[in-house]
């Protein structure tokens, strides 16, 4: 088994320069550990065998990327850095975007984040090196690769992957409205609502968590976002927000969540409230109680 010297080259296909700016310290600052991987930065794309691509692939860059990629000698490995490189992220709906990059190049490793932490980018490069070694030795790429850098601690306040607490959610769609990269979608089904968060589209801005009236959606400080291309479409957080059956009329309805009731009945114990009744029947019951 022979070791390959990974030769790294970065291509910017129209990023907002966040990923590029984070890429430089990743490579240049020692504490992120890229120097321990034996990666060499090359000046010419012809010498490279490890390509890092940032940006959503603008229409103007497309032909230049094609010609640049055609110059690289096989085999090579591509690491997509940033949410834009994976799914075009926040710019997806624009006329000027022809991406994502995997339409043109075979991407091997994806690093989600907007921008990803240098630790994530370093992890992405490390996984890229591993895949490169496997490719050079004629081995198949496995389904997943374990984390290479073990230290994944981030400050408490770090905005990482979003998570949802379905008990608190009432499917009010505030998060869907304020999400700039349309990473959240709420669909109605028979049993209630499905709340989906696509981590590979998310731009980690925390808008949903900030505007959520009940605190159901929140950001964790996890930044384990480096995935292989085969996992690209599986990185979804999916929760079901169950609807209830009205004890009075038997209709299905969306009950107010614990979080929402807690806001409305500040001084009462929320558990005591009879929530098994739909708003229509509640209105009638209240009317009868007051005027009958």
């Amino acid at each position: 088994m022979s070791e390959v010297i990974p030769k790294l080259f970065r291509i910017n296909t129209g990023s907002c320069n966040g990923c590029d700016v984070e890429f430089m310290p990743t490579v240049l600052v020692e504490k992120f550990g890229v120097s321990t991987l034996g990666v060499e930065m090359v000046e010419d794309i012809k010498d490279a065998n490890l390509i890092a691509i940032t940006g959503p692939l603008t229409a103007r860059s497309e032909s230049f990327l094609k010609s640049a990629v055609s110059k690289i000698r096989h085999p090579y490995v591509v690491v997509g850095v940033g949410t834009c490189a994976i799914t075009c992220g926040i710019f997806r709906d624009s006329y000027a975007i022809n991406g994502p990059t995997d339409k043109i190049v075979d991407v091997n490793v994806n690093v989600a984040g907007c921008p990803p932490r240098p630790q994530s980018i370093a992890e992405g490069i490390a996984k890229g090196v591993k895949v490169l070694n496997q490719v050079m030795n004629g081995e198949a790429t496995p389904k997943t690769i374990d984390a290479i850098f073990k230290d994944f601690s981030a400050p408490e306040s770090f905005r990482g992957r979003m998570d949802l607490n379905p008990d608190m959610c009432t499917a009010c769609r505030t998060c869907e409205t304020v999400c700039p990269s349309t990473a959240i979608k709420i669909t109605e089904i028979a049993a209630g609502h499905v709340h989906n968060i696509w981590h590979n589209s998310c731009c980690y801005c925390g808008n949903c968590a900030y505007f959520c009236p009940t605190g159901a959606i929140f950001s964790t400080n996890s930044f384990d976002t480096v995935k292989l291309q085969s996992e690209k479409y599986e990185d979804v957080n999916s929760e079901i927000i169950k609807s209830s059956t009205c004890s009075s009329c038997g209709d299905t309805y969306m009950p107010p969540s614990r979080g929402l009731l807690g806001k409305g009945y500040v001084h009462d114990d929320v558990k005591k409230l009879d929530t098994k009744i739909c708003s229509k029947c509640r209105k009638e019951a209240n009317f009868k109680r007051m005027y009958a």
Partner: peptide, 29 residues
């Protein structure tokens, strides 16, 4: 023109809350 992402068109497609984040991505520096 390599970084042209059609921002002026994009901001008119998104609401005021979304644009708080989209304008951030005009330039990350």
């Amino acid at each position: 023109g390599f970084i042209h992402r059609g921002m002026e068109s994009l901001v008119t497609k998104k609401n005021f809350m979304q644009n708080l984040i989209l304008t951030e991505r005009v330039c990350s520096l």
